[in-house]
Each structure stands twice: as structure tokens, then as C-alpha cells.
Simulated scan of single mutants.
Amino acid sequence: MEGIIVKGIGGFYYVKINNEIFECKARGKFRKDGLSPIVGDRVKITLDKGKGAIEKIYERKNELVRPLVSNITQAFVVFAMKNPDINLDLLNKFLLQCEIKDIKAVVCFNKIDLIDSYEEHEAVKMIKKAGYEYIFLNAKNSIGLEEVRGKLKGNITVFCGPSGVGKSTILNNIVGKDVMQTGEISEKLKRGKHTTRHSELVEVCEGFVVDTPGFSSINLTIESKEDLKDYFPEFWDYEHQCKFNGCLHYKEPGCIVKRAVEEEKIDENRYKFYTRTLEEVINGGKNKW
């Protein structure tokens, strides 16, 4: 049978198949191969007298370290309009991490009640021009949360963003504390107060949500200067129009991307972030945040 690991704790893995959850152990062969099952893994299991065994872990689309989870398809990148103010470079680093990990990013602008004319904020204009989806939220008053819920179907979703922006408030509203405290898994996992806590996938609106806020800091390495431009979706339409093949959209003459920046078709803040990041990669050989 095939299913998805929704929780792992104390060497036990809880695999959801249709509407049932099976407690499983991993075969020893995975340890020999240096591979451990993690939440989000698609797996094949067998059952013997009601005890499950994980026989195969299917190839992962991606993997995050904090939280430790695989096969994420969507990230709600949460930033507050105020308290704390938006750091454009940090927002772009979160978007870059999503692109590198092949995760669809949806930007959530929370605390819209704290500023006037929030739709005219430079961060909002930047995101619009870059082509990312975005949602305006006032999570404390449940404004915009239905739009968030509407995007959960068919996805494994993580919430991420810097500290203090309201990730936990949004997550608790979406998942609901009653959902997180009940269910077949929670009953099985009452093994003592010292049990190690791992992330869990909670089923909401026909999708899965990681039940802890995701990465609040950036930890990724860019090895190749040639790869960086591929992580900026607004560059893609211009990719083969530049004068030189393999144009880095940096100092080369006849660069159509640079012309698009001058014509305000590509956001200048995004382009400046790109060139600064490119310079760090060139000067350091690789870029690690």
C-alpha cells in the first residue's frame, strides 16, 4: 500500500492511506543507505498482523531542514506591513529559497490595518510586478483567511517568514487548535512528556498543512552564477532575447532584461537584489546565508 507520512516520533512513522492511519517502523535497509523517512515522504508499506513496515521511500521533490519535511508544494511567505517593517531583501531571499526548492510561493501581507494605502506599498508593487500571487490579511480579525484556505487543496503547505509577522496566528486560525489536539495520531502518541516533538501534517481543506511555522531564517547555498537568473520568474520571458547566449543580465551589452528594468517592466528593487546576490556568488564562489 502507498501513502504519506504525516507524523514521525520515537522511531514510529504514521502513514495516511485514504482515510486510515497506520503506525509503521522503517526497515533497517534505510539506515544502511543513510536514509531516514521524514514527514511528507511518499512511501510504500506492508502490514503483518496489524504492524506496518515502510518498504520504500519514493524520490523527494524537495526537502526542508527546519521544519524537517519533504515534498512541500506551496509556501505562504508571511510579512507584516508594519511591526516589523518589511525588509525587501529578506522578502526576496525567502522567494529565492522557494524557487530553489521548487516550492510555489504565495506572499501574505499581514497586519494591513496598521498602515493606510497598503496596496501602494513598494513591497506590494514589487511582488505584483514579479508575478507572484499575494493575499492581504488582518489575521487577528480573520480578514483574508478564507482566501488562504482556498489555496490549500491538493497542496502540502508550509507557512514561513520572519519573526513577529503573525505566522502562528494565521496557522492557528487555519488549522484550528481543536484539529491539532485531536485525531487518531494524537491518541497513539501519548508516550510520555519527554517524547521528541516533530512536525506533523494536518489535513485541512483537502490539503496538508505543516503544523509548525516554517523557516524564519534563510539557509541555502547558490553554487553557480549561471543558475541564479533561472530563479527570477520575471526574467524568463526575456531569456533568449539578449544579444549574448548565456547572458547573466549583469554587465553585458545588449541585455534585454536590463532594458526591461529601465522601462519599468521589471521591478528595480528585484533587479538590484539579483545583481547584489550575483556579485556575492561571483566574489565568493558561492553564496550562503
Rank of each mutant, 00 (worst) to 15 (best):
residue 115 I to G: 05
residue 155 N to Q: 12
residue 117 S to Y: 14
residue 100 I to D: 02
residue 121 H to S: 08
residue 164 G to S: 09
residue 160 C to N: 04
residue 151 K to S: 04
residue 167 K to N: 10
residue 133 E to V: 09
residue 74 Q to W: 04
residue 107 V to E: 03
residue 173 N to S: 12
residue 122 E to W: 08
residue 170 I to N: 02
residue 121 H to A: 13
residue 171 L to T: 06
residue 126 M to V: 11
residue 181 Q to L: 15
residue 116 D to R: 07
residue 122 E to L: 14
residue 183 G to P: 07
residue 109 F to K: 03
residue 106 V to G: 00
residue 93 K to R: 11
residue 177 K to M: 11
residue 145 L to V: 05
residue 93 K to S: 13
residue 83 N to M: 10
residue 101 K to R: 10
residue 172 N to M: 06
residue 89 D to R: 05
residue 77 V to P: 01
residue 72 I to D: 00
residue 114 L to R: 07
residue 114 L to Y: 15
residue 143 I to G: 04
residue 161 G to A: 11
residue 181 Q to C: 10
residue 120 E to D: 14
residue 146 E to H: 09
residue 136 F to K: 02
residue 113 D to P: 04
residue 101 K to A: 13
residue 164 G to Q: 08
residue 92 N to L: 15
residue 165 V to D: 03
residue 82 K to M: 06
residue 138 N to H: 10
residue 144 G to E: 00
residue 98 C to K: 02
residue 123 A to H: 07
residue 139 A to G: 04
residue 119 E to T: 15
residue 107 V to Q: 01
residue 152 L to W: 04
residue 76 F to W: 04
residue 185 I to H: 03
residue 160 C to W: 03
residue 95 L to G: 00
residue 114 L to T: 12
residue 128 K to Y: 11
residue 169 T to Q: 05
residue 175 V to F: 06
residue 130 A to C: 10
residue 126 M to I: 11
residue 125 K to Y: 11
residue 99 E to K: 05
residue 149 R to P: 00
residue 162 P to L: 06
residue 122 E to F: 15
residue 116 D to H: 13
residue 173 N to T: 10
residue 140 K to C: 09
residue 144 G to A: 06
residue 77 V to I: 06
residue 134 Y to E: 02
residue 138 N to E: 14
residue 182 T to G: 07
residue 121 H to K: 07
residue 161 G to Q: 02
